[in-house]
Design a protein around this nucleic acid. Structure first.
Lengths: 224, 224
DNA sequence: ATAATATTGATAGTAATACTATTACTTTTG
DNA sequence: CAAAAGTAATAGTATTACTATCAATATTAT
């Protein structure tokens, strides 16, 4: 995967940034270190001033790349889902068996992520951690409808859509394909979160992972 | 239900408030109007100053009831889950059939809420709306572990636990009872959210509700 | 090589937030 | 009716989330 991905630029909605961070060294530093800093102190405590200090740059310089920290988080999330989509498409093409294909897809969206070193300035493992902790905040605010109209969540919805189609291939009679997919994708993040913080209301732990739970669920649910 | 509930005081963790809002007229006004104001402008825009203006009272007076707006939100959430738990216990006792009992429980935690007028200062329908939009924020922050230790989420976890036991009664062999429950409870809020904001990735709408989706799921999943 | 242009850094400034502290006024209660 | 408790008003602080300006430094174009 390393060689392949290193030639592919993950595309996100240009409305998310003022200046494309992929086009400069400072921009990449912003991406790389915002991931680390959000992981470290949490999104609420994260400020452009602190990020500026971390990268020995200036608050005002960061504002030249992102309007505010919310858009930066949506940018990081979009990047994450685009990366997931790429891996999803890549690893499910050429799987003949419909159920196996679906199972592979579910594995991709629910498994624990390790840094794959394919992109120098993005640590995918840490990005996955902040997605688990913070992704919900990109949606849960008073601007969702406006931002949805502007296409901020297109990639996320597209990942949902791709798996929905796979479910329909496995069992066209199943009546809740969309809800099943969205509940798996979001629910998997939630199970990872519970595993880390509220252990008593999940079966997931170091041995059992959300992937097992959802694979078992889907196989039993779509059986004809 | 009206007469019954009006005699029952919903108990929440006293660490959540400085002074119990149930003990004064101003306290009740704070609860009632914080629900309305959070629904109106969203939790991020919500401040004690604005709430003070709304109830013709002073910012500093509100600080005498709640340390900060986060604790107020956790208070409202606890109240909500305690109310759900009450309804859960009340409406499932004396149901002999294990599956019917479980289905009733799932209905309680997933259905759309209408104001039941049992508590004068809490509009349950609006509270349900803010739980759908904002509950995730009570968990997703850097204080979860500390607050979990302090027991802030006990009632929520207890609701999970009660339904987990019901699943075990229906099918003791099912290996992911905890994860199934937590994914239903949280997932149902998410489906309601999607129905309101990202309609393309859910089957739920004015006709199909999250309850149907989850009842169908559980029945098929726990079949022996 | 140098002039033009773009990028970045430093500083200052503003309005709002999230509080704390003090004091005075008003209600409740013993 | 006096003491205590509760509430309102005001002021003040540190931080946040920006915007604006200008100087310094790179980059690129000729």
């Amino acid at each position: 995967m390393i060689d392949l991905l290193s030639n592919i630029k993950i595309q996100v909605n240009p409305k998310l940034y003022v200046k494309d961070p992929e086009t400069s060294a400072l921009g990449k530093k912003i991406i790389q270190n915002s991931i680390l800093l959000i992981d470290e102190i949490g999104f609420e405590e994260f400020t452009f001033k602190k990020l500026g200090e971390k990268i020995s740059s200036n608050e005002s310089s960061i504002y030249r790349y992102f309007e505010n920290k919310h858009k930066l988080l949506v940018y990081l999330s979009s990047w994450y889902w685009a990366w997931i989509e790429y891996r999803l498409v890549f690893s499910t093409t050429n799987i003949e068996n419909k159920l196996e294909k679906l199972k592979k897809a579910i594995t991709i969206v629910t498994e624990n992520i390790e840094d794959d070193y394919s992109t120098a300035h993005v640590n995918e493992a840490v990005l996955n951690k902040i997605i688990i902790e913070e992704f919900t905040k990109t949606l849960h605010n008073k601007h969702v409808d406006k931002e949805n109209k502007e296409g901020f969540f297109l990639i996320y919805k597209q990942v949902n859509y791709r798996i929905e189609k796979m479910i329909e291939e496995v069992n066209p009679e199943y009546p809740f394909a969309k809800s099943l997919v969205s509940s798996i994708i979001e629910g998997s993040l939630h199970q990872h979160f519970l595993k880390n913080h509220l252990k008593t209301i999940t079966n997931c732990n170091s041995e059992i992972n959300p992937t097992s739970f959802y694979l078992h669920l889907v196989e039993n649910l779509l059986k004809k």
